[in-house]
């Protein structure tokens, strides 16, 4: 119990540090942001503070598996992302943002609204899904521009998403290794165009000049990374 509470405080402390870092970054950036990216308030804060229970999460995940499938493997078509092994913080952030409308997702909202999932359910699902084994990469790209993809990744992505695409939980940087190619391609497109409402502004800046070919190359490279 004590250990749990400490772990919970640990996350909140990390979140605070991340927020302070972001605030500092925002101050030094030439363009001042109106609101900080990923503001930790409301039920996002609530769910992050709650102790997730993987066994309860396995049951609550029922409403997710019609699309994200058993084992949270997602779909190679890219319609539904793989969630297995994703950082709990990232899962909570995304669920909360979809519920609040910061990340527009009409497809998912009816299955994740406040009448279906409580903040505790969100914490439980995150605990369950983040502990699931990451299956080998399935949905990959054509494999024709992997060297270009790797060069782009090393230049622009590695600082946040890590050497192995593992991301960083406390900083809310998602694990992207082994994500389905078609899902990556769809989301980088939405981030580049500004349609993904909760995108990290740093990432929007980085990939705005990307051509379609470059988005394909880096998505293909990432889909083949093993964490």
């Amino acid at each position: 119990m004590r250990a749990d509470a400490t772990a919970g405080r640990g996350i909140v402390t990390s979140v605070r540090i991340a927020l302070i870092a972001l605030a500092l970054a925002a101050c030094s950036a030439p363009v001042r942001q109106a609101a900080p990216w990923n503001e930790i308030t409301g039920e996002k804060l609530l769910a992050l503070r709650l102790q997730g229970d993987a066994a309860r999460g396995a049951r609550a995940y029922e409403v997710c598996q019609g699309c994200h499938r058993r084992g949270a493997t997602g779909s190679t078509s890219g319609t539904y992302p793989r969630l297995a092994g994703q950082h709990a913080t990232v899962l909570i952030e995304q669920m909360a943002d979809i519920r609040s409308g910061r990340r527009g997702n009409d497809k998912m909202l009816p299955f994740a609204d406040e009448h279906v999932l409580s903040p505790q359910d969100i914490a439980d699902i995150a605990a369950y899904v983040s502990a699931l084994p990451v299956p080998p990469a399935l949905g990959v790209g054509p494999g024709t521009r992997l060297a270009q993809g790797e060069a782009l990744y090393r230049r622009d992505c590695v600082a946040c998403h890590g050497e192995r695409g593992q991301g960083d939980g406390p900083k809310f940087h998602p694990m992207i290794a082994g994500q389905h190619y078609r899902y990556l391609l769809r989301e980088v497109g939405l981030i580049r165009s500004g349609e993904r409402g909760n995108a990290n502004p740093d990432m929007v800046r980085v990939i705005r000049p990307y051509t379609d070919d470059e988005l394909e190359a880096v998505s293909d490279y990432v889909s083949r990374m093993t964490r």
Binding site: E62, V63, C64, Q65, G66, C67, R69, S75, S77, T79, Y80, K107, F111
Partner: peptide, 14 residues
């Protein structure tokens, strides 16, 4: 399997 194109989840999920 549901219908991915129209966003119908697999009934078996729930």
């Amino acid at each position: 399997d549901g219908n991915e194109a129209s966003g119908v989840p697999a009934c078996a999920g729930c």
